[in-house]
Design a protein around this nucleic acid. Structure first.
Length: 659
RNA sequence: GCCCUCGUAGCUCAGUUGGAUAGAGCAACGGAUUUCUAAUCCGUAGGUCCAAGGUUCGAAUCCUUGCGGGGGUGCCA
């Protein structure tokens, strides 16, 4: 049901008498929107005010003309003018009831789908394999999955590609680790775990070594910063009122503070390693490990037989690990072309750029210079190695050949926005102008302290342990014996496990999706599994209640052969509010996708669940006055439930029949 | 230095791309229950939308400046 499009189409003939340009007409039509103030109208046309200059008449007069000429009586029970010239629409209950019946009969809930379906390639999740996945990966995975599902549901062709990092330095690290640190027995028993351990050992040694070598630099910086403070203090005593100096002084003082803290932290790290004599010995034996690792990576990239064989043998284990996580998250991809897939195409990409004079050598590297950017995009390093930019270009070209998409979305962290701006500029120069490239960026997950979410020690938080904790918390709250007793739910251990799992994972996903994706948000496990307020559980619970009513209604015999034919009756205000919300499903999905914002969908579902709760409270189904009313209310209940379930499914969140 | 972003209720966040009296959740307070699952519903209180100018019939939203945070910034991804 595309209500907005229908209403707008009724205004088109009236508005075209003043606005002839199709683009201007569309922007005018876009001013017909769902009303923010429910008490005033269902929909409102904010068109008369901006038209006053075009038409040369006062807004009230224009509104009156619209009122007289618009043919919309079959949809509306009331059309009126209010305020500065708003045209307010109230849909008739009869029309709402008719549409609800259609949605009820329809398998896909009356969703018509996009008038012009498009082909999308969506690049999301994209973790580096062989590195443990952490909180940072959740956003891309969950947001990308939701966007893919909604677009597909709206009738678009969607191709999802997990552009995994399977060719980078982390393989140099585990290859080196395997060669020098492996525990044969552990590897035979659990390859994935042992590879993870090797990765962490190498990373820790490199971390220690770079801390040691960086300490002198840090101390030098501290002295410089202190000197700057002294200088500025002297200046300030001469000119106390100079704001610029005061500001510089403040930032210099901050720099001193930051630098001292950083030095303190470095010293702690060093002390920790040095108290661990066995580990310290490893660090000494493998000096300059970072460059040794780079050498291993480089050998791999140049086709060294031993390293290539190791890479090939490790890769399945690494993939197995991430597939395990996707299975828990219930996320699937159409493709998983990793970086390694493009490796052989990279020299040709650079040659092509050079031959078309789009790229040029600079300081020993091959660069594409772009207008408006100080730094060029480097496509080949001094040492001849390629970079992620090169791979990204090759990837876009491959996708163009393979899928020819109308739009290509990259669901990636906002910190990479400049990279994507440059990438898209290069792609345009290359001639990939058919596709609309879009960086669907998102903000950072923060801890309670307002800093990026980390453990106390400063490590990233592992994704698996986070999921485990969410499920455990969900169990505590949902399967609390007191609550189950009060709700009169008797659940088997297996039921409880399933519910805790679905509620826990749903909580994590929903908490992420319900924030505007461009914002940073504070990760708060207590809140997301608290199960009241704007959470997945509240919506899942509402769904379970719809199922419970249906089950009882079946038991009491309202669901006979032709109950579905009983027309929906709208008498109570709670019925009407619920009805209208149900019919806004498709409009909301479509609107959420113009800027790919899944929080539009969560907000809708939360509102729908609240409309249902209010209806549940005020309009009893089983105790309604007549059989007709019972069946009508049951239809509303079932329809609301189907939309809640479908909506959550589009967000990658499952439902349970009882909770 | 340059570029990008953010600043909304005590807290966490929305705000339909410039529309009517700025909204939700949590927390606080008051009411409803021998329940079609109270994980609920109904209500009250809570605001200098960072500040100052400007554009407009109309600004939290657009422009300028300032203040305060976060991020990026030539060989990681």
């Amino acid at each position: 049901m595309q209500l907005l499009n229908l209403i707008r189409s009724r205004f088109t003939p009236v508005l075209s008498q003043w606005v002839t340009d199709p683009v201007a007409l569309q922007t005018t039509l876009d001013r017909i929107v769902a009303s923010r103030e429910v008490a005033l109208a269902d929909y409102q046309a904010n068109v008369a005010m901006p038209l006053q200059k075009v038409v040369g008449k006062p807004p009230m007069e224009i509104a009156q003309t619209i009122l007289n000429e618009v043919k919309i009586d079959d949809l509306c029970s009331e059309v009126s003018i209010a305020g500065a010239g708003y045209v307010n629409l109230r849909l008739s209950n009869a029309y709402l009831a008719k549409q609800l019946d259609m949605a009820f009969q329809s398998e896909n809930l009356g969703v018509e789908g996009a008038a012009n379906p498009k082909t999308y390639v969506i690049d999301f999740s994209s973790p580096n394999v062989a590195k443990p996945m952490h909180v940072g990966h959740i956003r891309s995975t969950v947001i990308g999955d939701a966007i893919s599902k909604v677009l597909k549901f709206l009738g678009h062709t969607v191709i999802t590609d997990n552009h995994i990092g399977d060719w980078g330095t982390q393989f140099g690290m585990i290859i080196y680790g395997y060669k020098y640190f492996r525990n044969e027995e552990a590897f035979a028993k659990a390859q994935v775990a042992e590879l993870g351990r090797l990765y962490r050992v190498v990373q820790r040694i490199i971390g220690y070594q770079s801390t040691v070598s960086g300490l002198a630099e840090q101390e030098k910086k501290l002295i410089l910063a202190e000197q700057k403070v002294a200088l500025l203090e002297a200046k300030q005593s001469e000119a106390a009122s100079d704001k610029k100096i005061a500001k510089e002084l403040k930032s210099a003082q901050n720099a001193v503070k930051e630098q001292s803290q950083a030095i303190l932290k470095s010293k702690e790290t060093i002390a920790a390693v040095e108290s661990d004599t066995a580990f310290k010995k490893l660090c000494d034996e493998h000096c300059n490990l970072e460059s040794r690792v780079l050498k291993e990576t480089s050998k791999l990239h140049h086709g060294d037989k031993e390293n290539l064989a190791l890479w090939e043998s490790f890769l399945p284990f690494c993939k197995e690990e991430i597939h395990g996580i996707y299975k828990r998250l219930n996320v699937q991809f159409d493709h998983e072309y990793g970086e390694s897939f493009y490796h052989e195409m990279l020299p040709a990409v650079v040659e092509d750029l050079l031959s078309r004079s789009l790229a040029e050598p600079s300081e020993g590297a091959i660069c594409v210079f772009l207008e408006g950017y100080e730094a060029p995009m480097i496509v080949q390093k001094q040492d001849g190695a390629f970079l992620y930019s090169t791979t990204d270009i090759a990837t876009a070209m491959f996708r163009e050949r393979e899928f020819g998409p109308d739009a290509s979305l990259y669901v990636v962290d906002h910190r990479q926005s400049e990279h994507f701006q440059k990438l898209f500029a290069v792609l345009e120069k290359i001639g990939l102008t058919h596709t609309h490239f879009k960086h669907v960026s998102f903000g950072t997950v923060m801890g309670n302290d307002g800093k990026p979410f980390k453990t106390r020690a400063g490590d990233n938080i592992g994704l698996e342990s986070m999921l485990d904790e969410a499920i455990a918390r969900a169990w505590e709250v949902v399967c609390d014996p007191e609550r189950l007793k009060k709700a009169r739910q008797e659940l088997s251990e297996e039921d409880k496990r399933e519910i805790a799992n679905i509620v826990g994972i749903g909580a994590i996903k929903y908490a992420d999706l319900c924030h505007n994706r461009t914002s940073d948000y504070v990760f708060d496990m207590d809140k997301m599994v608290a199960l009241d307020g704007n959470t997945a559980a509240y919506i899942q619970y509402s769904y379970a209640r719809t199922r419970s009513i249906l089950q009882r209604a079946v038991g009491e015999g309202y669901v006979n052969a032709d109950w579905g034919q009983q027309p929906i009756l709208i008498d109570h205000v709670a019925e009407r509010t619920l009805a209208l919300q149900i019919l806004r499903f498709e409009d909301t999905l479509a609107a959420s996708m113009t800027e790919y914002l899944p929080n539009g969908v969560t907000e809708y579902l939360f509102d729908l669940a609240r409309c249902f709760s209010s209806f549940f409270d005020q309009c009893s189904v089983l105790n309604a006055e007549s059989l007709e009313q019972k069946q009508s209310r049951l239809k509303l209940t079932v329809l609301a439930g189907r939309i809640l379930k479908q909506g959550l499914e589009l967000l990658g969140i499952e439902t349970v029949e009882r909770m």
